[in-house]
């Protein structure tokens, strides 16, 4: 008896409840724009996650699972009793809670889609609170000097929409703000504006309508 199939027919959200009562590795392959992924389960807990040969840190693992929940292209196979050769970033996430929280994040991203910042809007850090926030810990170095969601997504290897969502949340919490470019009007611009203002005022002063 084997557990295998296609994400097109059985999504990760269908598989996760099953994984909560299994011990072994769930291998996902032929994914869209992603290398193979291996998730190790034991006693109802996700122990650790790998993308290709690379073990994922908790923020990356959470982002990956969130992305996988919406993936419809790819295949999976479960290897019973398989254990990782190493587990440097133990996750210890109960599968049922993981399913609930990642589905919530996906729903929130869709719900807030119109409010998500433009991918290239630049934010900067103004508060070092929330050290427990895994995303902020990794993004802090970039946000200190100012960074956009697109740059962060590339630097941290996270999905762009999830980074935009994180920036929206951090912005609402007052942890990051828009990094407004300093307005430094050049003297020649000031001069040009002054001449234009004067010309407009002298031409249209007192007129009710100003087109001849």
């Amino acid at each position: 008896m084997a557990i295998f199939g296609s994400l097109n027919q059985m999504s990760l959200s269908d598989l996760l409840p099953l994984m909560s009562v299994k011990k072994g590795a769930l291998e996902l392959f032929n994914l869209d724009k992603h290398p193979n992924v291996t998730l190790y389960f034991d006693s109802g807990v996700l122990r650790c996650a790998f993308k290709g040969p690379r073990e994922l840190t908790p923020p990356h693992a959470r982002a990956l699972v969130t992305w996988l929940l919406g993936a419809h292209k790819g295949s999976f196979e479960f290897i019973p009793e398989a254990t990782p050769r190493r587990c440097e970033f133990p996750l210890g996430w109960p599968v049922t809670q993981l399913l609930l929280s990642t589905v919530t994040v996906r729903d929130e991203i869709e719900h807030h889609r119109a409010h998500l910042p433009h991918p290239d809007t630049v934010y900067r850090l103004v508060s070092s609170a929330h050290p427990e926030d895994g995303f902020l810990r990794e993004a802090q170095v970039y946000l200190t000097s100012g960074s956009s969601a697109r740059r962060l997504a590339a630097a941290l290897d996270l999905p762009l929409d999830q980074v935009r969502y994180q920036l929206l949340k951090l912005s609402q919490a007052g942890v990051v703000v828009i990094a407004r470019r300093k307005q430094t009007t050049k003297p020649e611009q000031k001069g040009a504006a002054a001449r234009l203002l004067s010309a407009l005022k002298s031409r249209f002063a007192g007129r009710r309508t100003w087109k001849p």
Binding site: R124, I178, A179, T185, A194, L200, R208, T209
Partner: peptide, 27 residues
């Protein structure tokens, strides 16, 4: 309306001339 449409243009030019820096809520 021409007279009304002119107002934001004049205000913008005044801001450029004065070098106003009125942005308060964020950086």
């Amino acid at each position: 309306e021409a007279k009304s449409a002119l107002v934001p243009l004049l205000r913008l030019l005044e801001i450029v001339v004065s070098g106003e820096k009125p942005l308060s809520r964020s950086g």
